[in-house]
Design a binder for these strands. Structure first.
Lengths: 243, 243
DNA sequence: CGCACCTTTGACTGGCCTCAAGAGACGTGG
DNA sequence: CCACGTCTCTTGAGGCCAGTCAAAGGTGCG
């Protein structure tokens, strides 16, 4: 389940300037270092379950994790896709509200909950950053609602690809080869994509095949997707291009 | 569009202890009073549009407002249902991201944005409360995602009714007549409900008729809905009853 | 009364789900 | 090296739920 527990300096941290600690001064970082530890989880393994007691909150350092809800008859809906710098957990709450799963190999920077909450109360830089990040997540959730409620299967797939492409560009992954094209690493199985989009895995597979057939995407293996022309993909999302 | 602009004391405010100002001390309230003003909007009228310049942020004092997104081909998805004490606007952002509409007659307590942001930076009580409220909204958004992505039309309707019932109970409206029954005032047209749930208004109408036919709800007029047995309604939501 | 708006109901269509089978990738062990 | 099992993904056939199109009923207001 958990693989390693190491400690590492914040100085060389890849998410130093995007995570919850982004606005901290060096003395505040030092205090954070005292309550933090690293954990890694293997792809496909659970990180924690809904209802679990939360002894920590954490930042995603590397990899991707998912938040999801499951109804008792098995229907599952993903409600969060956590990429590097995203925050796991809710200060002030002792139990996890969703299932958290490692979609790919994940490295977490964990903070013990109690001392973190104490710091949150005394360090405005952390609270301010957390508020900003939460507002961003709320915006993302609302964009997601439009996808779930109103978009067709094809538009859903295109929207997911463009969202991941946008995030990977922001983090500096997704090496852009040519001018307008790029390749993204999609850390999700077909089933996880279906859970994200409110579809079945068969429909996901069919739509990806269709996009491939039409040359809008090119598959390299199952999980690496080349987008030769980002504008062409965007035209499939149903979002206004105003072109 | 805007009907009245009056000022009113915080002391007698019905949302004093639930809104963004909930944790403020009396001196902080006095400062808030200086930058606040009331506005009312008639049912059905827009409060502002996506892209509008935001000169204020606000709390909903009375009535209900909706946040919604519209695609250029007209498909609309509601992404927020704002009831008394909910917050409108995002500190640090100058334009509104969504269309805001008065679902019923709405009274807003508006704060001029610039001075509010200044207070936010200097008054921890406000930022803390806003973080908590934003986290609550994020949870609500995620519950909503499950509804949009995985529930059937009937389950969606039942879920909406139970959500509104829960909120009205929390605020202290929704006079409970008997033991387990209650009556709720649904401030939404069929079309607004459809936009909330990712359905068409025809499907909403059909499902409400079905619930009425089966005695799970009783209509008094179009907008007032009696729920004789809350447990019976809950059983229609698809959520675990573990009964 | 006449009009506007919201709602209800019906008939039909279609997109996605369900059920099912098979293909491809990968690791294990004989 | 290949048989075998497992896991993921693909593809096909058919059915159903919700969408679409259409018309009529209700309610409130000038």
């Amino acid at each position: 389940m958990m693989d390693t527990t190491v400690r590492q300096s914040c100085d060389s941290c890849p998410i130093r300037h995007r995570a919850v600690c982004a606005r901290c001064e060096s003395d505040e970082l030092q205090e954070l270092e005292r309550i933090k530890y690293y954990r890694t989880h293997e792809a496909g393994h659970p990180i924690c379950w809904a209802g679990d007691d939360m002894t920590f909150v954490a930042s995603v350092v590397k990899g991707a994790a998912t938040l999801s809800q499951t109804m008792e008859d098995g229907r599952t809906q993903m409600v969060g896709l956590l990429l590097p710098s995203d925050f796991i957990g809710r200060p002030g709450r002792t139990t996890m509200a969703y299932d958290v799963t490692a979609a790919s190999d994940v490295t977490l920077c964990c903070f013990r909950r109690k001392p973190f909450e104490k710091m949150l109360a005394t360090t405005p830089h952390i609270g301010e950053r957390l508020l900003d990040m939460t507002l961003d997540e709320l915006d993302a959730a609302r964009e997601w609602m439009l996808i779930l409620g109103r978009k067709t299967a094809r538009e859903k797939i295109a929207s997911l690809l463009s969202i991941v492409a946008r995030r990977e560009l922001a983090i500096g992954m997704g090496f852009t080869g040519a001018s307008k094209g790029m390749t993204i690493d999609l850390p999700l199985t077909r089933e996880a994509m279906a859970d994200y989009l409110g579809l079945t895995l068969e429909t996901v597979s069919r739509q990806i095949s269709a996009l491939k057939r039409e040359g809008i995407i090119v598959l390299h293996g199952k999980r690496q997707i080349e987008i030769p022309d980002m504008a062409a993909l965007m035209r499939q999302t149903g979002d206004e291009v105003t072109a």
